Simulated scan of single mutants.
Amino acid sequence: MRVVCGGYVVDVRDGRLGKVMGQEGPYVQLRPPGGGREWDCPPDAVRPAGSRDALRARVAEANQASRLP
């Protein structure tokens, strides 16, 4: 699967939703919606986020942005 930087995917190993931040070596770098610590995931262990997951991610990011000064 080809991943797009800025898109949302699900890490099928544990079900975590992540925003694609880039690709380093053989791994895709993902960050939780709304911020947090990035993690590495093999490209074959991600699937595109469904519309419900993507909406949840955008809401989390909007909530986080509203808390910033």
Rank of each mutant, 00 (worst) to 15 (best):
A57T: 00
D40F: 13
P42E: 12
R37V: 14
D40N: 15
P42I: 13
G22D: 03
P32R: 04
P48T: 06
R37T: 14
E24S: 14
V28I: 10
Q29C: 15
L30C: 03
G34F: 01
P26S: 11
A49P: 03
P43W: 07
R56D: 10
P43H: 09
P42F: 15
E24L: 15
R31N: 03
L55T: 11
W39D: 00
P33I: 00
P33C: 05
L30Y: 01
G35H: 05
D53F: 06
A57G: 02
V28L: 02
Q23F: 08
D40C: 14
V28S: 01
R47H: 07
R47C: 11
V28E: 00
G36V: 07
Y27I: 06
A49V: 06
P48I: 01
P42H: 13
D40E: 15
R56Q: 11
A49T: 04
P43V: 08
V46T: 01
P26F: 06
G34T: 02
C41D: 01
Q29H: 12
A49L: 08
C41G: 01
S51R: 12
G50H: 10
L55N: 08
A45W: 08
G35C: 06
S51I: 10
Q23L: 10
Y27K: 06
A45K: 09
Q29S: 08
D44F: 13
G34H: 01
R37Q: 15
D44S: 15
D44Q: 15
P26C: 09
A57V: 01
V46F: 01
L30W: 00
D53L: 08
R37A: 15
A45M: 15
R47L: 12
A49K: 02
V46W: 00
P33D: 05
A49H: 04
G50C: 09
W39I: 03
Q23A: 14
D44T: 10
R52A: 15
G35A: 06
V46S: 02
R37F: 14
P48S: 09
E38T: 12
E38H: 09
R31A: 05
G50T: 09
P32D: 05
P48A: 09
A54C: 11
G25A: 10
L30G: 02
P32Y: 04
G50A: 08
G36I: 08
P26M: 10
R56C: 10
G34K: 02
R37H: 15
P33A: 10
D40A: 15
S51C: 07
G50R: 09
C41Q: 01
E38I: 09
P43N: 10
E24K: 14
Y27P: 00
P48H: 05
C41H: 01
G25R: 08
R47K: 14
D40R: 15
A57R: 02
L55I: 07
A57Y: 00
